[in-house]
Design a binder for these strands. Sequence first.
DNA 1: TGTATGCATCTTGCATACAAATGAATTGCG
DNA 2: CGCAATTCATTTGTATGCAAGATGCATACA
Lengths: 234, 234
Amino acid sequence: MKQTPKLQCLQDLRRRILATEIAPGSDLDETVLSEAYGVSRTPLREVLQRLAGEGYVELSENRGAKVASMDLGTLRTFFQTAPLVYSNVARLAAENRSPEQLDELKKVQARFAAAVSANNGGEMALRNHRFHELIGEMAGNAYLTPSLNRLLIDHTRLGQVFYRPASVAETLAVRRASEQHDAMIAALEAGESGLMVELTLDHWTLSRDRMERFVRPDPLPIDVIQLSEKRNAV
Amino acid sequence: MKQTPKLQCLQDLRRRILATEIAPGSDLDETVLSEAYGVSRTPLREVLQRLAGEGYVELSENRGAKVASMDLGTLRTFFQTAPLVYSNVARLAAENRSPEQLDELKKVQARFAAAVSANNGGEMALRNHRFHELIGEMAGNAYLTPSLNRLLIDHTRLGQVFYRPASVAETLAVRRASEQHDAMIAALEAGESGLMVELTLDHWTLSRDRMERFVRPDPLPIDVIQLSEKRNAV
DNA sequence: TGTATGCATCTTGCATACAAATGAATTGCG
DNA sequence: CGCAATTCATTTGTATGCAAGATGCATACA
């Protein structure tokens, strides 16, 4: 596998978009990027076209590329669609996975677990992304895969916000997610599609609840003085 | 809407692939195509990249583009996935369609009906394609749309085989399909998502049965002499 | 006769130069 | 002073020429 600068550019842009290192909605300047990656504008444009096809960026005529945005409509659609696609892909993956794919999945999960131990948020998000991308590959369904991958892009980008475990509860949730990954590997290996679907929905619920709690946290105390008096009154 | 040669090239290639005018698996020569459409190779390559993103063609490194193939695995996956995506898109379309979209859908259906009357198979297939593509747009789900459109590409290409009503039964089936379109428009207009899903599944069943009957026709008579004797024995 | 290797040809990939389009600032006019 | 039109700078789109890789054939050898 030779590392042509074009391929590196493609992969690096994907990574940076997933990591929200480049923010959703940002404009991408062809000249700047082509100089940064040491390729001419022609291959760079091809990279952008490809990223557009994968759902990472959006192109508009005569106005260049920008990173796919995540507005409210997108979010609503995301929460509406994810369980449907995830669960169906899960079932197919359990039915069609190859031993080689399972091996790779285990490797990725090991790296994910390592990132969890190291408490490295960005790394966790990217390994998790690859984990679920691989399950998509296992499903071997050329029609569902593009949907899944688009969902995963936004899922990972959303995750960048909360895959930075500040509180103890968050840390526990991440560990739980990692355990679910292990269980999913076992289900895939055994070809138990029903169990795999169940685990996948649990996994989704965990992730969704964390997002929800991030978006809608416990409200701040309304009357600070009263609270402070209460404390002093002990 | 200006008709730049590049856009025309894109649309014409889409049409020709859907019409199986260019067969699945065919190699596409950049030089030949660029000369044919009067554009240089650079924009032509961008067109191919885009078509690859949409699922019309497949690109491979240093070996150019070829029309997306339709092997047995693809077909199996197609029949497995279509009802899931179609029905879910149908539900969303009934919930989200705009009046403008409904107007356009009616126009397309009028043209489809006209093609049915004229017994113009190719035209029927393309109008039908656009009809269902529009329902996808109505759904307004950026995650499911790519799946739907990929399914539709293969559905239309499969249809090219049997959208040429040879027998009376086929002609009736096409009329029936057209009536179902009308019913779907009514359901969409009324926002009756449940009904829309039902109609969509009926529509799918009709189409699937026709494909099945084409692939697995009544077997030829095994013993011709015996049959002929039977007939004479009357 | 079957297989391997080197060469010729053709196709794809990339870079650069140029053309067209967009957006912003400036200038002219009401 | 405000609005509008025009010009200029920046950015995107296209063409062409050249380089690199792949395919097929011919020739030589086992």
